[in-house]
Design a protein around this nucleic acid. Structure first.
Lengths: 220, 220
DNA sequence: CTGCAGTCGACTGTCGACAATACCGCGGTG
DNA sequence: CACCGCGGTATTGTCGACAGTCGACTGCAG
């Protein structure tokens, strides 16, 4: 056991994670104002760490500051979703390719475990969570710290979108469950085999497929 | 005059910008510890806004927090540079393509002005700044808020790298000045013409060219 | 009833203070 | 001479408080 010795506590970090979860859980719907005193009171802390958490979430695009400094949950439109997918299509193939080249066995464990969990998952929420987690795992497996910084932005946006479009996403997830699992499994195998080019293409295809499935307008 | 009245002040924002400039200017070399009391004292403010600025810079990868919470200027290696370029190659073609599709005249003004400034620029520092600014302008012209969030990460990393490799970059910039201006001009014209595919390819090529020029190891 | 001034409350931005903690150097001891 | 314990110092994380500002509500005049 590596005895990972005890990160000094940082409330802001915990708050950021918790707030992010709360938003995704629908606790704060799109457009909701996140006032610092309110959050501080609910969380039983002072305003300082709350402020810091909000700033962090803002750089991830999960809250927005208006001109007066109040933070709100942004409301996403269909265009926003297309925007997000466009960025994913730019970033994730790169991540998959890097992951294939790097071939870190430790990351493989995570990904494989995720696949198993996904095959066993029941609820759409669980499926959506695992889907994001898989893509997150691929980015982590790429070993690029900066790619991960960018991914943080995207991941939070995806979470936000999932939260705001829940009903539609639920239906889609259910419907696409097997397809998604198959696509992920293929990506995983390809990454493990070290075929970077194919991994890139699979990742790209997996994402562009979503464009077709999505309700609404033409994309890109 | 539209009478754009008056953003409520936010010291943290100013500090973030100023600190970022100071790091780029070499005021805080790689590995330097940025202690909050020291910064607060120098800036004549309290620690609170300094903390907030540091958090913002951390999410942009311009400072790192160690396990004890101290923030330092990260030191970049050749691998880091390759990593950054890889992300740029993923993101910027997308940005150029979007910019071509969107064709926002306002952004064109910025880009054209930048080109003129670059043709007139003298010092390598000026050239480097304008180069980053041009790419920044392309991302802004894409109109994608999230692409811009990701780009913020990259931009700060590029600035950091420029600061840390100054001597080599100076030589390169001088040497590549005409090539760069030509490449930018071509990109600009293509974006303005609305040819998205060609704009993407030009952006990709402009960046991959750097890979060949860079001193050191093979890339990708 | 409508419009306006004044007031109240809430919120943000900033500050100084305090506890906790880790580092550094010093002196004592085997 | 080497090693260990110890205090001083510096720094972080967190808190409560205050000023400035904005929006909403109320009450009054027309």
């Amino acid at each position: 056991m590596p005895l990972t010795p005890l990160r000094r506590v940082n409330l802001a970090h915990d708050i950021s994670a918790q707030l992010s979860q709360a938003i995704v859980a629908g606790d704060f719907p799109a457009g909701a104002v996140l006032s610092e005193p309110m959050l501080a009171k609910r969380l039983g802390v002072s305003r300082a760490p709350v402020r810091e958490a909000l700033i962090e979430l803002e750089t991830r695009g999960m809250v927005e500051f208006d001109e007066r400094g109040r933070s709100r949950v942004p409301s996403l439109t269909h265009d926003d979703l297309v925007d997000i997918l466009g960025i994913r299509i730019a970033l994730e193939p790169r991540a998959a390719g890097l992951a294939a080249r790097r071939a870190d066995p430790l990351a493989f464990i995570d990904l494989e475990r995720n696949l198993d969990a996904m095959r066993a998952a029941q609820t759409p929420t669980e499926l959506a969570r695992l889907d994001t987690a898989f893509h997150s795992g691929v980015v982590r497996a790429s070993g690029s710290r900066r790619l991960h910084l960018c991914w943080n932005v995207v991941e939070h946006q995806v979470d936000l979108w999932l939260a705001q479009m829940q009903s539609r996403v639920d239906a889609l997830c259910h419907q696409l469950r097997d397809t998604t699992v198959a696509a992920h499994a293929a990506m995983f195998e390809t990454i493990r085999s070290g075929d970077a080019l194919r991994a890139e293409n699979l990742a790209r295809k997996h994402l562009t497929d979503w464009l077709d499935v999505l309700p609404g307008a033409p994309v890109v």
